[in-house]
């Protein structure tokens, strides 16, 4: 669970827009990559994986307010391009439940999409290094590392959100009135988010969650590799 549960209207507009633009570009690239007659075959699979992610996200692990994402599993099974499409669909639907703001769907897709992308390539890398018998360790490790990186992106996004260009440059009535100097920037930024306490809270809460999601990912991939190896290792099947 590394996506932003930040409400609408808290993050600066430029950051929200940047998230949407980045998502649109990656989506366009993903659709271009998966274009072909096979795309219509993938629609039901996208639907099932997205639905599974939504179902898992609706089960909160109460003491730490955590929920699993299954984004790394989506990345491993669908591949990063199709997984990104699936993650956008999931974020759009859960935003309708009020699960994170509707305006931050773009940023959320980038963060969770990064998780699937990193998870997929790390899984492939670990399989190559440790061998195909280490499928459980490879997937578990890939999930934990992908979650750590995506959560760092999340903290980075929150950090960026406090450096609102309007605040830093001191825009008044649409015109820059004062260019920020090294001495006056920190005093203006302290009005925003305390990034240390935010990062600390997030890392304490999510640390247990990463481990849990890593273990779950490892067991799920192990199970699927036994029952339907063609889903994970198509060349082997």
């Amino acid at each position: 669970m590394s996506h932003l549960h930040i409400p609408d209207g808290v993050l600066p507009g430029w950051l929200v827009m940047a998230g949407w633009i980045l998502t649109a570009l990656i989506l366009a690239f993903s659709i271009y990559r998966t274009r072909s007659t096979e795309l219509k075959r993938k629609v039901p699979l996208i639907g099932i994986i997205s639905a599974l992610m939504i179902v898992c996200m609706t089960i909160p692990i109460v003491p730490i307010a955590y929920h699993i994402n299954l984004s790394v599993i989506a990345g491993i099974i669908l591949g990063p391009a199709v997984a990104f499409i699936s993650i956008f669909i999931v974020n759009l639907i859960i935003a309708m439940f009020g699960h994170g703001g509707i305006t931050v769907v773009g940023l959320n897709t980038v963060v969770v999409g990064a998780e699937a992308f990193i998870g997929f390539y790390l899984f492939q890398l670990f399989l190559t290094i440790m061998g195909r018998d280490s499928i459980m360790w490879s997937s578990g490790l890939a999930a934990v590392i992908a979650l750590i990186i995506s959560t760092s992106i999340l903290v980075g996004v929150v950090y960026l959100s406090r450096i609102d260009p309007e605040t830093v440059i001191g825009i008044e009535g649409g015109h820059p009135t004062e260019v920020a100097t090294e001495t006056n920037i920190p005093s203006q930024l302290t009005k925003g988010i305390n990034i240390k306490s935010f990062a600390k809270t997030i890392l304490i809460l999510l640390g247990i969650g990463w481990l849990l999601e890593g273990i779950i990912t490892a067991f799920v991939i192990k199970y699927v590799s036994r029952v339907r190896p063609d889903l994970i290792l198509p060349q082997r099947a």
Partner: peptide, 19 residues
């Protein structure tokens, strides 16, 4: 956790067959 994860795996396989 192991049983729950296998359950998710089962859902995934069933879901794939269904798709």
């Amino acid at each position: 956790i192991r049983n729950f994860s296998s359950g998710i795996g089962l859902l995934l396989v069933k879901g794939f067959d269904y798709s």
